[in-house]
């Protein structure tokens, strides 16, 4: 870029300073002064009001403002302290704008670089220092020190290897590839743990369910980890209106089917089921699965069908799992080839 040497219009230089009203009119200055002091005087009043609210207004008092029903204490504490803070700021700015001298000043800029002499001196000093260190003559000192410094990071990094257990194939089989479902485990309603009778389910019904074994898990972590994978939805559709592949004929009873509630995209729980289209929508990223067609993906970013849980009934007519899930639930991961999961068109 060309430096502006020959400008078409010459620089007229800084504009002349113009005085403000408050500079030339003593009455205007006094008015500004009174306003600023007035704002500062509002602060103690607001602070007192804050104290009154803090000690005087009960937690459960309510306040109707702009047609909304608000928590009086929280709102008033905020209004008083917020306005007080704002007053301080506005007063300071008003002071600076109207009463402090507003003559602009001009400073010099210097390039970011140091003067050449200084640079040369530092380079010379560096040379002297390097020479004095003897590194030039005994070369291994430098390499050795650099190598040692690099290697000393190794223990630091390796100590992080216990951040978590290693997902070896054996551990994966115990954790992300396994759920609480197993042969004969009853399907029970989430929250109330009521067992589900096949004969009670109506066409069009959706039940958010979990395995009965979940209720007995005392440990909070194991409970959450168990539920995070074992949550399922149970739906009943008209058997004549759905497609059941041959391999899954005995995974359902009279149109009662059960699917994992965990999206195969990034693992949100999904239960937005449209009973007429039989589509199940994930509220996080809108992947849509067709429950009338073995849970294949019909829309959105998910790549794998929703895993189906094979179910049957026990001797009392309650729904039980026929086995665990045949594929891991939740998002795909690198080590497992998911290409053999159920796809549209499989039998």
């Amino acid at each position: 870029m060309s430096e502006q040497k020959n400008l078409p219009v010459p620089d007229p230089g800084l504009e002349e300073h113009e005085h403000r009203f408050t500079d030339v009119n003593e009455a205007a200055a006094d008015r500004a002064y009174r306003q600023i002091v007035g704002m500062l005087a509002a602060v103690p009043v607001l602070v007192l009001a804050f104290l009154f609210v803090y000690f005087g207004v009960p937690k459960d008092a309510e306040l109707v403002l702009f047609g909304a029903n608000l928590q009086m204490q929280t709102t008033l504490l905020g209004l008083t302290s917020g306005l007080a803070t704002l007053m301080i700021g506005v007063a300071a700015i008003a002071w600076a704008r109207s009463l402090m001298s507003d003559e602009e000043i001009v400073g010099e800029r210097h390039g970011a670089a140091s003067p050449p002499e200084a640079r040369e001196r530092v380079l010379a000093d560096l040379e002297t220092g390097i020479e004095a260190s003897g590194i030039r003559r005994r070369k291994l000192l430098g390499t050795g020190m650099a190598g040692a410094l690099g290697l000393i990071a190794v223990p630091a990094l390796v100590s992080l290897a216990d951040l978590g257990p290693w997902p070896t194939p054996a551990l994966r089989a115990e954790t992300i590839e396994r759920t609480l479902w197993a042969e004969g485990v009853r399907l029970v309603n989430d929250v109330s743990y009521l067992p589900l009778k096949a004969s009670d389910l109506e066409v069009g019904q959706l039940v958010n369910a979990v395995p009965e074994t979940l209720e007995k898990i005392e440990d909070g972590t194991a409970f959450q980890q168990g539920k995070a994978k074992a949550a399922i939805i149970v739906v009943r559709m008209d058997p004549n209106s759905i497609k059941i592949p041959d391999s899954r004929k005995d995974w359902q009873i009279n149109g009662i089917l059960s699917y994992s509630k965990i999206c195969t995209h990034v693992g949100c729980p999904i239960s937005l089921w449209e009973q007429q289209t039989h589509h199940l929508l994930c509220p996080c990223h809108q992947s849509t699965f067709d429950l009338a067609n073995s849970g294949v993906v019909v829309f959105g970013p998910a790549a794998r069908s929703l895993p189906q849980l094979p179910i049957t009934t026990d001797s009392e007519g309650y729904l039980v799992a026929r086995s665990g899930f045949t594929v891991p639930v939740g998002p795909s991961y690198f080590e497992r080839d998911s290409s053999k999961d159920f796809k549209e068109g499989d039998r």
């Binding site: 905020g78 917020g82 803070t85 704002l86 007053m87 301080i88 700021g89 506005v90 300071a92």
Partner: peptide, 10 residues
């Protein structure tokens, strides 16, 4: 600063 703080409190 006080204005930003005040607005945030409000």
């Amino acid at each position: 600063f006080f204005i930003v703080f005040g607005i945030t409190i409000l």
